[in-house]
Design a protein around this nucleic acid. Structure first.
Lengths: 189, 189
DNA sequence: CAAAAACATTGACAAATGATAAATAAAATC
DNA sequence: GATTTTATTTATCATTTGTCAATGTTTTTG
């Protein structure tokens, strides 16, 4: 069950298989069905998830019930309500299951323990934050530079999975526009 | 000259003054005048800057000469073209001086050396990435949830310095709108 | 499989934002 | 301090995007 996470580690670090299994053993296998809410707005996020198979989203829902999507994780990606997880404070976003998923989850307690014990784990955390940074960077850049149609085209070119595997509704909430606008953008092509 | 960086460390970590000076000694004092370009689009970013006094921006300029601003650093904040600095690859953004500034700069060479030697420095880097994460997070959130006027009001409420110390032009480029739109938003108040 | 619910598309209209241009105002430069 | 450049505001008009409503299409569920 943990092969893909082990693979994730071997890809990103120079370390022995013993070191990897030392870290990976703290992750527990979980299955989650579509629509399941893993972390609720207002609660403290106690887990960091690695996606073996499936798809999760980090999303907000505002006072009018309007949804927006900050981040989407597919296979071999990590997801958490990072702010809440890091500081063990109340989360302002949800983590929701988009496709039936197989996951590996590590609790904050284990995470923190490993972080203080293992130098490799510290490197893992740094790598995770760096990957997250790159992701956030292009997100901000596309919002600053591009209008809705251009953002859609950007995804088509650079992250096709989002267009292919998300519903129009989810994709529009990821792009920060309405379903209707996305429908029109796709029709115009 | 290094007092404020030392203070930055003492605020964020539990460490001795010896440990701090060990890290801080790698930062070199630099002065920079308004309009100066510290890192150019297309070049590799070799420095990470800490702002003692003044203001820097991380900005893009597109093919039509249109500017957008990803991030603004005031006193006691760090700034770099992080993507480029981390991987020593070509930067897709500029770092430009907004107000005459007093800075502390660390080179990538020293940064990497410290990172491999010092556990405190690793913690410093983790903290830096976490702070950066929080900043990127609210940026993405405001782009997703809010229109231009609401984003302006958000800054007024949560980060007034940006409204007070940036020119309208810079502020509009930070908000991802035109100067004219910002003028109208301010007039409507 | 049928009914219900959720999702997707389309049209009409309103509101927000961008583009362009012109007129002041402010700042930088000599 | 006068001149030049840059920034700001205001107006007009075009375009994009949002809102609301109607309809058709899928998906879910019993």
């Amino acid at each position: 069950m943990t092969e893909s996470l082990e693979h994730f580690f071997t890809n990103k670090f120079t370390c022995t298989t013993d070191e990897i299994s030392e870290v990976v053993k703290h992750f527990k296998y979980v299955e989650a069905s579509k629509g399941e809410v893993l972390i609720e707005d207002g609660n403290v996020c106690r887990y960091l998830y690695f996606v073996i198979k499936g798809c999760l989203k980090a999303n907000f829902i505002d006072a009018n019930g309007q949804e927006t999507i900050r981040y989407v994780a597919f296979e071999n990606q990590l997801i958490s309500s990072i702010h809440s997880f890091i500081n063990q404070t109340s989360s302002n976003e949800y983590i929701t299951v988009v496709e039936p998923s197989k996951l590996l989850a590590i609790s904050y307690t284990d995470f923190k323990l490993e972080l203080s014990k293992s130098s490799l784990f510290k490197d893992f955390y740094i790598k995770m934050l760096e990957i997250t940074y790159l992701n956030n960077h292009w997100r901000i850049e596309t919002f600053l530079r591009l209008d809705a149609k251009q953002r859609y085209d950007y995804l088509l070119k650079n992250d096709k999975r989002l267009v292919q595997r998300l519903s129009n509704k989810n994709l529009s909430h990821f792009l920060g526009i309405t379903q209707e606008s996305l429908s029109r953008i796709k029709a115009k092509k």
